[in-house]
Simulated assay, not measured.
Amino acid sequence: MSSVPPAPPRPLSIAILLNSYKSRFLPAIQASYVRTISAVAPDAELSFFEPANKGEFPDPASFDLIVFGGANVDARRSHPWILKLHDFLRELVLRHPNKKVLGICWGHQTIARVFGGEIADMDVPEMGVTTIELTDAGRQFFPHATSSGVLSIQQHHRREVALPGKGFRQLAFENQVLINEKNSILTLQGHPEKDAQTARLRMHDSMRWYGFDALDEKSWAKLDAQIESEHEGQIIWQRILEWVDEPVLGSGMRMGRELKM
């Protein structure tokens, strides 16, 4: 009697929220996600949504992972589309408690805000590849960094999470990487989806952030070298996609009490 071969595993389905408002860089950002994720998961199915520009949101039931990506607005603002995104996040975690959620940069800050955390301006903004120090829990989460205790990741932000949301703990110091107690929400201040090609598109922000002169060749060259530095974006994505398959844990808190309404 012949046995029926097992069905091949279903490709991972990922919904990515592109939150930049009327940005000419959206096609480049989307392409960067495709390049980076496809390098580690060629079969992954990526779908993109634009809450800020089109009011689009995914059906959580149709995806394995929901990504709240970066944006070009202050995460402390309360524009109508931002409040709708907050509502979407609340409904997502209440109605789909086992769904995996990832926050990147603005998404990292926004998730912290919705869960009762605080966002603050930085003394010195971060741009280009930066090394962040992992906590003991972070070393366990990122086993490739057990010995080094650090991650190298593209950064582009002038605000930070000053206080994590309720039910979250640090995987990296200074709230650079956070995970909730249920193991269902992971957030990163840095940009694992960005390669140097994409990061370079926003180099002009340095003139506002650092006071660079447009003709200051030395400063521009130093920043360009930092953007071009080796980073671990693909390795981080590989770990994120492995995490998607990990079980969601029980929690001592009720989700409705964690959320900032």
Results as ranks from 00 to 15, higher is better:
30 Q>A: 03
31 A>S: 02
31 A>Q: 12
33 Y>N: 09
34 V>N: 01
34 V>H: 01
35 R>E: 08
35 R>D: 11
35 R>A: 09
36 T>E: 13
36 T>N: 08
36 T>R: 13
36 T>K: 15
37 I>V: 15
38 S>A: 14
39 A>T: 03
40 V>R: 14
40 V>L: 12
41 A>H: 14
41 A>W: 02
41 A>N: 14
43 D>F: 15
43 D>Y: 15
45 E>R: 14
46 L>T: 06
46 L>C: 03
46 L>F: 06
47 S>I: 03
48 F>W: 02
48 F>P: 09
49 F>D: 14
49 F>E: 12
49 F>Y: 15
50 E>Q: 10
50 E>S: 11
51 P>I: 00
51 P>E: 01
51 P>A: 08
52 A>W: 04
52 A>M: 12
55 G>M: 07
56 E>Y: 02
56 E>A: 07
56 E>C: 01
57 F>P: 00
57 F>V: 05
58 P>A: 15
58 P>V: 09
58 P>K: 10
59 D>T: 05
59 D>H: 01
59 D>S: 09
59 D>E: 06
62 S>G: 06
62 S>A: 07
62 S>P: 00
63 F>L: 11
64 D>Q: 05
64 D>P: 12
64 D>N: 08
65 L>F: 10
65 L>Q: 10
65 L>K: 12
66 I>L: 03
67 V>D: 14
67 V>W: 12
67 V>H: 14
68 F>Q: 04
69 G>K: 08
69 G>D: 08
69 G>H: 06
69 G>C: 08
70 G>N: 09
70 G>S: 15
70 G>A: 11
71 A>F: 01
72 N>H: 06
72 N>T: 00
73 V>M: 11
74 D>P: 05
75 A>N: 09
75 A>S: 15
76 R>L: 11
76 R>E: 15
77 R>V: 05
78 S>F: 10
79 H>F: 05
80 P>I: 09
80 P>W: 15
81 W>E: 07
81 W>Y: 13
81 W>M: 13
82 I>H: 06
83 L>D: 01
83 L>H: 00
84 K>M: 06
84 K>T: 05
84 K>H: 04
85 L>R: 12
86 H>S: 14
86 H>A: 09
86 H>L: 07
88 F>A: 07
88 F>P: 09
88 F>Q: 11
89 L>E: 06
90 R>Y: 07
90 R>S: 10
91 E>A: 15
91 E>M: 06
91 E>Y: 15
92 L>E: 00
92 L>Q: 05
93 V>D: 01
94 L>D: 08
95 R>S: 09
95 R>V: 00
95 R>G: 10
96 H>E: 11
97 P>N: 02
97 P>K: 04
98 N>T: 14
98 N>C: 05
99 K>N: 01
99 K>R: 12
99 K>G: 03
100 K>A: 13
100 K>D: 08
101 V>K: 13
102 L>H: 04
102 L>P: 07
103 G>C: 11
103 G>D: 13
103 G>Q: 07
105 C>F: 04
105 C>E: 10
105 C>N: 04
105 C>R: 07
106 W>C: 04
107 G>K: 08
107 G>V: 02
108 H>I: 01
109 Q>E: 15
109 Q>F: 08
110 T>Q: 10
